[in-house]
Amino acid sequence: MSRPFHHGNLRAVLLDEATAVLREHGADALSLRDLARRAGVSHGAPRSHFVDRRALLDALAERGFLRLAETIRKAAESTPDDFARSLHAAGSAYVAFAAAEPALLDLMFAAKVDSPSETVHAAAAQLFLVMSDIMATGVAAGVVAAHEADRLALLLSATVQGIAGLVTSRRITVAQSEPLIADAIALFLFHKLPEP
């Protein structure tokens, strides 16, 4: 189904269409020619924004990382006076994003892992930066030791990604993920990391 677009927003329309295809059919179904048809433009028009299919996939991954980072940031900020609840809100938001966008999450973490494009690398860094910022609030509250903050941010990210993977593979439900997130946070808050 084609959508009208105004000069200057074709890239956004193409990414929206690509996201819809990704949700419905997976990454293998994505092609620039099909996106052009869906957007109602000539088959060469997408190439002015994406030189090839890889560039399209990178743009989707970049957009996904930025969306996820913003989703997590907003969730954590919804409970600013309670660090444990902020962590839980961030973890729950991550899992909810994964459940809603499993193909996108797979694409984000598969996007040229060995040599990601600069834009994908920068967008992925934003996700970790948000997790680090959340952990910094724990340092400010005296709950997290400053020297452990980066390690805990990475460990929490890996743990929540693992829980999200269980949800997207349908090993557990989103509801079943909630106590796992709570358990992980309890471990982070009440157990010390071993010395490096």
Rank of each mutant, 00 (worst) to 15 (best):
P80W: 04
A125S: 15
V130S: 06
A90H: 05
A111E: 03
L107W: 01
I134M: 01
M108W: 12
E101Q: 09
H147T: 11
P80S: 12
A122E: 15
L107P: 13
A110L: 04
T119Y: 13
M108D: 15
A76P: 09
A136K: 07
D82F: 00
S117W: 03
F128V: 10
T119N: 11
A89S: 13
L105M: 13
V95D: 03
A103K: 02
A96F: 00
P116F: 01
A98Y: 07
L107E: 07
G91K: 01
I134H: 11
L107R: 06
I134T: 13
T79R: 11
D81K: 04
A140N: 08
A76K: 06
T119H: 15
S86A: 12
L87R: 04
L104Q: 09
G138R: 02
L87G: 12
E77R: 05
P102H: 04
D114Q: 11
A125K: 10
A76C: 02
S132E: 14
L129W: 10
R85N: 08
D106C: 15
A99C: 04
E101C: 04
A103V: 05
E118D: 15
A146Q: 07
S132Y: 06
E101R: 08
V139M: 02
A145K: 08
G91P: 05
A125E: 15
P116G: 09
F128P: 12
I134A: 07
M135V: 06
G142R: 02
H147L: 08
D82I: 00
A124L: 00
I134V: 15
V143N: 15
V144C: 02
A103C: 06
F128Y: 13
S132P: 00
A111V: 06
S78R: 09
A99H: 04
A122S: 11
S132T: 08
K112G: 14
A99W: 05
D81L: 01
E101I: 00
D81V: 07
L87K: 02
D82Q: 14
A100R: 08
V144E: 02
D82N: 14
H121F: 13
A124T: 10
M108A: 15
T137W: 11
A136R: 11
T79Y: 06
L107D: 01
L105Y: 06
